[in-house]
Nucleic acid binder design. Sequence first.
DNA 1: TTTTTTGTTGCAATCGTTTGCGTTGACGAT
DNA 2: ATCGTCAACGCAAACGATTGCAACAAAAAA
Lengths: 342, 342
Amino acid sequence: MKIGQATIKDIAQELNVSASTVSRALKDYPGISDETKRKVKEVAKKLNYRPNAIALSLRKSRSFTIGVIIPEVVHFFFSTVISGIEEVASSRGYNVILSQTNESFAREKSSIDTMLSNQIDGFLVSFSKGTTDFEHFTKLLDYGYPIVFFDRIPEIPNAISVMVDDYRGAYNATSHLISQGYTKIAHLAGPSNLSISKEREKGYRDALTNHGMKVHPELIIECAYGTNDEGFKVTEDLLKNGKIKPDALFANNDMAAVGAMLAFKSMGFKIPEEVGIVGFSNWQFCAIIEPSLSSVSQPGFKMGETATQMLLDMIEQKLDPASITAPIVLETELLVRKSSVK
Amino acid sequence: MKIGQATIKDIAQELNVSASTVSRALKDYPGISDETKRKVKEVAKKLNYRPNAIALSLRKSRSFTIGVIIPEVVHFFFSTVISGIEEVASSRGYNVILSQTNESFAREKSSIDTMLSNQIDGFLVSFSKGTTDFEHFTKLLDYGYPIVFFDRIPEIPNAISVMVDDYRGAYNATSHLISQGYTKIAHLAGPSNLSISKEREKGYRDALTNHGMKVHPELIIECAYGTNDEGFKVTEDLLKNGKIKPDALFANNDMAAVGAMLAFKSMGFKIPEEVGIVGFSNWQFCAIIEPSLSSVSQPGFKMGETATQMLLDMIEQKLDPASITAPIVLETELLVRKSSVK
DNA sequence: TTTTTTGTTGCAATCGTTTGCGTTGACGAT
DNA sequence: ATCGTCAACGCAAACGATTGCAACAAAAAA
């Protein structure tokens, strides 16, 4: 009495033909009379026949399902990426199975394991902050298993990845602050084991240097969590105890930027008149807070789309992984709002 | 050369026993000598054996996978729910396959179809705004297919659903505005075909009535999209062309509330001194905008957890759907911030 | 020694579908 | 009458795992 239970055999029985004939008739194979094809299709429709994808997967060792490994779902950028992934996957007839690691290495590994048992056709991965050992990925890559990394990309050979131009985004953001006349620009950096953090910091440093300004290491502070509170605390601490008082700040992410903004405000600084701030990611709230927060927008949706297209092309052998030698880089856009314009 | 390719047969061959023996040995069935069990497990580990979940699904007609149908992923509340779903599912050994409908009825139907072919064990559904015909659900329910609806729940018999107490949330929010001395409270309502919108509007109306205030229909405006811009526009229009000028506003969702807030500000009103505002959902930005936005927080994570627990219990026959006669209602919490305190 | 019991293991079917190959019968050509 | 051709279809194995039943040996009971 279960749903969609009509099988090829049921159709076969009803018409007194063999299962093979039904299978071929449904797929318009040659060697089946038009008459039979007609009848088979008719009965199939009558019985509401729906091919059993599981049986198909078993036969073909293909599941038409891709696995997405992501640190957290409740995150504006990542949810945007997921959205892009889902759009492309479903339009190309693939299912998306989702697993969030909550930034835990152990969960990342076990997720991959269970997905492998489910005969996933390929992986879309943004690894967790806790991941420093990449053997579970390299092993798969060695076997030729299709994987596309996005946003957080590993430093391993032959890995296919899609990223945004973090360096240039950070460079532009910092240059913008400089052009506005701010002179002592601090940086709230991200976790140092993520390449995106390093790239952003490098962009920040190079922008200063290229504009003839000095880089003060004490103005670069790592925010491991990237939360509102953390941004507030480190900024407050910097203002109270630091030797150099910054008059601007470029943050690795928007949440930290907001925290910093609140800290500056609570210490009596006026934004943007006295202090300029720029964030990264362009979360939804950037436009609606007071003052509105300038930010580097990342094309999350496009990243999801691009990564998925590539993965599916690899799965369907339309794309040779060896032909991709460098990460795909998507451009960012600096959205200048009130928080950084004097 | 594919990964995880070692099958039960490979183990069997290596030890010169039959596949059945291996299967039983791995599951510690009685009737297999300890010696054999030991050897089998040893070889299994050596070959990195991983049971093929697809083959298992076919055999047992169970996929240990649940399907989640959701209007959109890029939405704070829904992403929170997904997070809760994922936590419970993975802790109980289930996979989550995700599909977003983008509020389209057609996609909702086709998603369900493909998931059915994938032998999904059950559904977690929040249907789209475009859904008015529920036959695709009732048909499944009639067959005893496990479904749990969340947040947006249908008015069909025997449906199991989890919702938040929208009525009480709205009632409390409105009462709070009244207690602060606001007298002409407007309401930005949600799409009228969603029960959550109706409940919230009802809570708003009842709060007014019970406090001896009149309900002015011209102060209730439907916002079909619930966006920032829409909230801004309708509020601006209300202030410019409306007969009654509101001095407070309760919005069906936070985005619209922010839009309204910006509209009030742009017309020169001071918040909260002259105008009080309360939103719904407690999006992340509520706490960081200026003034911070009072809002009714919905337990999204808990909703995901609860719905998933129930679904899995139904799937595993630990819960008889017939024993659930009313929707499960989760409590909301009114978070009072600056936007509504004179 | 014969029979029964017990402990281990294998055979084969099953889940739903696909597919290489063999079979059947009709028909035209010789 | 015999052969070859061809269209139309069926058989059976395969994908990987599970499981009822049968089989077989050795050990215990008769």
